[in-house]
């Protein structure tokens, strides 16, 4: 019993130490966001200088008053959710086909997708821009949503996880007369909730933090996402440290909420079988 208690205390101590190490920048950001105006980095000479002399909401308020922040939140939410829905549908189905349907060409496509993982976005930016322009999508929400639907990374990920769904489950459904699509929706998807949640979180975060591609494709201020919008704070002169941090903190909160809402799915323990070999 004593040993168990010691282990438990050790576990907490270790986690707390690691947790602080990882939480540090987030804390730093939030503390700085409430820092009174104009604390300069050059005035920091000791660790104590990172703590604000007193707390103020001025920075947060100015983020919402200087630009129509709510509008940008709505835009970004539209882009993020639009993308995530597409990503889950498109890549989930493809991953399922590659994992569980032994169609001709399965192997070739799978190999192709793994290889395509390496293509750097920065290398094809201009070509992609020309495609999006030809399709007439520039300066519309579709310009940031559609190109992200297909992702080699997520197809690969879905495939790896669907491999672990027992074949018996699928066969049983088929014997019951379910269509292949019905099987996928009713049987496979519910057993693979953790993957869908994971992809949701990862893609949501990715879209939320997206800067470069929206910068190129969205020229009207009305379509800006939050990252483009808050750029104004960090490039405006005079540079205002507190406001910059406040803008970053404000933008981070929604993602934080999404993660907090979804992370409980990781403790529920959905009983799928072990995942088969690649």
């Amino acid at each position: 019993m004593v040993r168990k208690r010691v282990t438990k205390i050790l576990l907490y101590v270790l986690n707390t130490a690691l947790g602080l190490l990882f939480l540090f920048p987030l804390l730093f950001m939030f503390v700085s966001a409430f820092n009174p105006a104009r604390t300069l980095p050059s005035q920091i000479t000791s660790l104590g200088d990172f703590l604000p002399a007193y707390f103020t909401f001025d920075n947060i308020v100015s983020v919402f008053t200087r630009i129509p922040m709510l509008r940008y939140f709505a835009n970004t939410l539209l882009y993020a959710l639009g993308t995530v829905v597409g990503v889950l549908i498109v890549n989930g189905m493809a991953g399922y086909a590659l994992a569980k349907i032994n169609f001709r060409g399965n192997r070739v496509i799978y190999n192709f997708i793994v290889i395509m993982l390496i293509i750097p976005f920065e290398g094809i930016t201009l070509a992609l821009y020309l495609v999006v322009r030809t399709l007439g999508l520039l300066d519309t929400p579709l310009a940031v949503i559609l190109p992200s639907f297909f992702s080699c990374f997520y197809v690969f990920m879905f495939r790896q996880f669907f491999l672990g769904v027992p074949n018996a489950l699928i066969e049983a459904a088929e014997i019951d007369g379910a269509s292949p699509f019905g099987t996928y929706i009713k049987i496979v998807v519910p057993t693979a909730v953790p993957v869908f949640i994971t992809v949701f979180i990862l893609e949501f975060i990715g879209k939320w933090g997206d800067y470069y591609w929206p910068m190129l494709t969205l020229t009207s201020e009305g379509w800006y996402n939050v990252q483009l919008a808050i750029k104004e704070f960090s490039t405006a002169s005079p540079y205002h440290w507190g406001t910059v941090m406040a803008s970053l903190a404000v933008v981070t909160v929604p993602v934080l909420v999404v993660f907090l809402c979804l992370q409980r799915y990781y403790i529920e323990g959905i009983a799928t079988q072990g995942i088969k070999d690649m």
């Binding site: 105006a37 104009r38 300069l40 980095p41 050059s42 002169s237 540079y239 205002h240």
Partner: peptide, 26 residues
């Protein structure tokens, strides 16, 4: 490690600054 607002801050860290005239309106 200075930033470009060291001179224009409320309690400035820099006593002089080489800057462009475009800063004057700010």
């Amino acid at each position: 490690s200075a930033t470009s607002s060291d001179f224009s801050a409320e309690s400035p860290a820099a006593s002089m600054a080489l800057m462009g005239t475009q800063n004057i309106s700010e």
